[in-house]
Design a protein around this nucleic acid. Structure first.
Length: 494
RNA sequence: GCUCCCGUAGUGUAGCGGCCAAUCAUGAAGCCCUCUCGAGGCUUCGACUCGGGUUCAAAUCCCGACGGGAGCACCA
């Protein structure tokens, strides 16, 4: 009896593990605090979704707290709209945000802790020219200011705050180990001066700005982070931040750095995209050519598909290559049963059908669920004109016979197309099936992710499909943006 | 140049000393299907980077080589 229970339990555990993330070391139900920390330079893109979703998954698993921390400490790279866009994107992704923290509202906190560090002799104000300081560091040598007493630095720091220094003329530096073998770890800048541009939120109220490694360490502690999961590109940052934790005697969160993702052939870089939008190259942040969350939403990629993808990908240290095919497979799985079928004829050419006066079609909205209804088209008169894809007409010319799906069979002789019944047994002769649209179809275009546009005709739609993902038979899944007067759709995937 | 991280099929993933002549997904190829270049069914292809060592036994542990990636910013 006991044995039996054990077996079922272990089998289930194994099954769950295969498709799930590993457990977090030291995670206690209800006590986990994690974060997502984007810079507000634009809306979220595919690269952001991994860290957001992984952290959200763990917060859900452990009933933890998810903090969305906006790292807006570089006024040069802030899009004021981004604050709101990030929030919207997270909502769309299904990420449950418990708390939002904006770093530009916390300058005083950073200043106070900077004073403390200086006081402890763990930080100093350096007024060396940038290059000299950097060069000395490379040679593992201290700059002339490094060993001056804290009181001097405290004084200089207050002068920084009082705008007595120009931009680039003074910085607060955290002492680490100048002889550290890793050059990336030696003394690093904690706060700098920015006066050349106002901050979109705080204007020119503050001129001393914390650097990422300083504000991150401070906030990770103050906000009570228990676990930090992020990309491997932050590995050295973590080492730097650890110095700050040690100096203050703070308990470090559990860190994990997963491998980098390379996303092929996708335009992600926020600054490039922002510029492209301004110049009219892209229609906006949701341009279907982009890798933004908004673009994916527009195309009909479901957030659940993105989530499934990243969970499957896991959090290993190995660098991974993103593949659209896999994401599409997840999406297709989620969407296949819901998507109505429609005929979209690209590169349309007319065919006049002789030998029949009336044709009526009953194509199902979904082949597996006939109860959902049919797309009924009635055509009368002789000849009856329909439109087919240009290549399909060539196929008819070549083979002599063809079947119009859910309508009838055709034969072509001497350039004239004749109705030859509606018997499905014709398929045994290996006759090919093509799709078609009636004469009263709607002009339409499908925007492809590569920037091209497929223009053609879409069958008259008797149902409101706007905003929904449909499947254009023999073409692929696409999301309908509008269906009149002209149909505009956005291609998702095959 | 220095430092760190990593190496299982095309891609992602499971396995982490014997159950592995290596899992699953995706992809590719082919076939089936009275109606899609979708779904479904069936079949096939395809990987433990290499070399030493430890061990009765290694994809799994150790060392080295090779390969890939990241950082060395008054960006995040």
């Amino acid at each position: 009896m006991l044995d039996e229970i054990d077996v079922t339990l272990s089998k289930r555990e194994v099954k769950e593990r295969v498709h799930g993330l590993p457990d977090l070391p030291g995670a206690i139900q209800g006590k986990v605090v994690m974060r997502f920390a984007p810079g507000p330079s634009g809306p979220l893109h595919l690269g952001h979704t991994r860290v957001a979703i992984i952290n959200d998954e763990y917060c859900r698993r452990y009933d933890g707290t998810f903090i969305n921390r906006i790292e807006d400490t570089n006024p040069d790279r802030i899009d004021p709209d981004a604050y709101e866009m990030i929030e919207e994107d997270l909502k769309w992704l299904g990420v449950r945000v418990d708390k939002t923290v904006i770093q530009s509202e916390r300058f005083e906190i950073y200043y106070d802790l900077a004073r403390e560090l200086i006081n402890m002799g763990k930080a100093y104000v350096c007024t060396c020219p940038m290059e000299e300081w950097r060069k000395l560091k490379e040679e593992m040598k201290p700059c002339p200011h490094r060993e001056l007493p804290p009181s001097v630095h405290l004084d200089l720091f207050e002068k920084m705050l009082a705008r007595q220094f120009e931009e680039e003329k003074a910085v607060v530096v955290i002492k680490t180990d100048l002889d550290h073998p890793n050059p990336a770890i030696r003394d690093f800048v904690a706060l700098r001066i920015v006066t050349s541009m106002p901050h979109p939120r705080t204007g020119d109220k503050y001129c001393v700005y914390p650097m990422m490694n300083f504000s991150v360490a401070v906030d990770d502690h103050l906000l009570g982070l228990t676990h930090v999961i992020r990309g491997k590109d932050h590995l050295n940052n973590t080492h730097r931040q650890e110095y700050i934790f040690r100096y203050f005697g703070w308990k470090e969160p559990w860190y994990h750095h997963y491998g980098l993702v390379s996303i092929p052939e996708t335009i992600l870089k926020t600054s490039t995209v922002g510029k492209g939008i301004k110049e009219g190259e892209y229609s906006g942040w949701d341009d279907v050519r982009l890798g933004t969350v908004r673009a994916m939403a527009k195309r009909g990629i479901l957030p659940e598909a993105i989530r499934a993808y990243w969970i499957d990908c896991g959090i290993k240290d190995v660098d991974v290559e993103f593949t659209w095919d896999s994401l599409f497979a997840y999406n297709r799985d989620l969407v296949e049963k819901a998507a109505d079928r429609l005929f979209f004829v690209w590169d349309p050419v007319p065919i006049d059908i002789y030998g029949v006066e009336r044709l009526e079609s009953y194509a199902p909205l979904h082949p597996e669920f006939p109860e959902r209804g049919v797309r009924r088209q009635v055509m009368e008169g002789e000849p009856i004109r329909v439109y087919v894809v240009k290549d399909d007409l060539e196929l008819l010319k070549e083979r002599g016979k063809i079947r119009l799906k859910d309508l009838c069979n055709l034969e072509m002789k001497d350039g004239r197309v004749t109705y030859i019944g509606n018997d499905l047994s014709i398929l045994k002769e290996k006759v090919r099936i093509i799709h078609w649209v009636p004469q009263n179809s709607i002009p339409g275009e499908v925007l492809m992710p590569d920037g091209s546009i497929r223009t053609g005709l879409v069958e008259p739609i008797h149902k409101n499909e706007d905003g929904k993902l449909v499947q254009f038979e023999r073409f692929g899944f696409a999301r309908i943006g509008q269906s009149s007067p002209k149909m505009i759709a956005y291609y998702a995937h095959p």
